[in-house]
Design a protein around this nucleic acid. Sequence first.
DNA 1: GGTAATCCTG
DNA 2: CAGGATTACC
Length: 726
Amino acid sequence: MFIYDKIYIFILQLLPLYYSSCMDGSRKRERSRVQQAHKIHPVGENMHNALQGCPDDDKPELMLPCFRRNAYDEPLASYSNGPIISQLLRKSLHNKRALDESHYYLGPSAVSSSAVVADSSQEDRSSVSSKDSAADVGSPGFHPSTVASPEAERPVNDHLQAKRARVENIIRVMAGSPNSRLHGEPEKGEMDARDSRECREAREVYRENKRKQRLPQHQDHNPSGGSGSSLDNTKDEECHKLKEQLQSMQKLLRQLQEKFLQVYNQEDSHRGEREDRGGCLEHDNLIQSKELSYLTNGNAFEKKPARGSPESKDRTKPAEGNLLNLRETKNLQDTLKGELSRVVNECVDKVFKNVSSSGLDLSPLRSMCPSPDVQTSGGAAEIRSQQGGCPPQEPPHPVEPPSHQRSLEGHGDTDAQSPQDQTEALSLVVRKPAMAPLCSVTPTTVKRPYPMHQPAFQFNYSSPLHDTQILEHLLKYGPHTNFSGLSCLPPSLERSSPDSGELPWDTLSMRSKVGPGHLGHHPRPSSLGSVTVDNLCLPHVKMECSDLQGMAERNPYLPAVSVALTHILHIQEGLNPNHLKKAKLMFFYTRYPSSNVLKTYFPDVKFNRCITSQLIKWFSNFREFYYIQMEKFARQAIVDGVNNVDNLSVSRDSELFRALNMHYNKANDFQVPDRFLEVAEITLHEFYNAISTAKDSDPSWKKAIYKVICKLDSDLPEEFKTSSCL
DNA sequence: GGTAATCCTG
DNA sequence: CAGGATTACC
């Protein structure tokens, strides 16, 4: 089996999970649009949809050894060079020539050593034939060429370059920004696949929603979590899958490394023979060595003589040649390690970034996860040191960092849009996901558009996303948590495949817990769903986290995971500032919510006696403020000489409303329902009448008013139920 | 007795 | 907004 075939297959195996984990914002927007059109909403999908969810939706067999041409044709067209793989393949070219020319040049059908190779080759051929027929192995122009003749080996090089280009492009696509797909309209097949996928999602959501709505909502406090068992099981499964996929990824890496070593050990045995074949091979080896040394950041090869230099000619000496081989092998190994490490890390980063790119600020994530940008520069050193070698770090792709930055900057403005970021006392070690409080819950439009809350996406963090938030949420809610109410998830992150262990990062499809940005402007197609009630069993999660963290720490290829998981251990529960904000907004509808209502509308809160009391206390405080304001303004009206209650009205311009709005809707990003104005006016009238009739002399004169007001509660919009953060 | 609402205080 | 005290209700 030839090295590039192995690389090729391996890369193609990695590709789907890359795609599955990397989804760009435009895709999400597109998805959102489609969802709206279909009146369905995005949700966590089961893993079964993983493959269909890939950009290559229509190629579910992508994971199989027999790859369809389309699986890599598309990436191929988008990118050009890939130094690392280029070097590897170039080297493999020499190896092949030296080892067994006929073996390879007989064509794919003759390659019987491995069905996988044969399939791959055939697929290669078919894939290339259309656009690259000149390089086709089986094409007429392709003939076994003598190694010594640079001219004659041109067809070979063409073919190999074609393959190399594909591998490189795949690598590049994996390593680079998935935004490449953004620049074009989604293909029809993709769209169709997506639509069908979303239909499945909708059904899934509906089921989950129904399940959630059956959750006990009575007030009997159930600290153990009435609905916890199944959810905990789900979380169990997700964590387990996550671990399995991590291991799968590691295994793939190891396998590839071993195969590389195997191939090159084999190569060593033929080294002398090859070297006798003439200067051409030697020349190419020199080129490769030199370029490898360049790519490997030169620790081992930095002193490598320049191409064609006198010193290089001496390399034909056996001892030196062997030494070189050893070093090349080592270097190649390191190169591969480094490259794969980078790719894996980038996959991880992509996962996080795409989660956060759903309208989230990414900067915190970048600071947390060694992003590819970082890795290729300063971070590379760390990785090298971790690996004990010096995996070459390919110079940063000229395109990639900008694309990342673009995507980051695209949402960067969300970073600044935290005028109302809650800073309330909050727990401590790790902040709960700071959800954007900025949602207009009413189905109507917001009073006015607030540019700062106009993200490109439906949901959006108003404050920088804490680095642990996503992973915290992942473990808290599980990869398949129904975030229907928070349907900001990139489609890619909602894919997973239970029956495929080859999608290691699919279950990293973290659901970010974000708040709806502008419900008014983006009628949320998620009314069906609701946030899965969190009955997190914290000790369990901690255990799982520990496992994951241990894995991550043991695996130097996953520094980002290691770092991230380290933070997960501090997951805490309870009400967070966003819950408070939500409660305040709910007050516009209900002044006297029952505990059942609270439980219904805070589905992401694990209710216990303390939490319930706290929530009730919140509303009590809200009422207190509300009545104080009413009394104050009623007395003021009397002082001001208002002699008719009919002259006492509450409008959005009135001082009373402003005071209330400032208290419950400080950011003023919520469209206060008109009903609240009516209730406020009624309350004001009640106070006015009571005071004007001197009923306030009675110590309990307010009770009558309370009795009236408590009947004026209105129903809460569904949006409150479906989203934990508004 | 338990729960929750209100009142009061910080 | 939380904590404590008081009160009301079941």
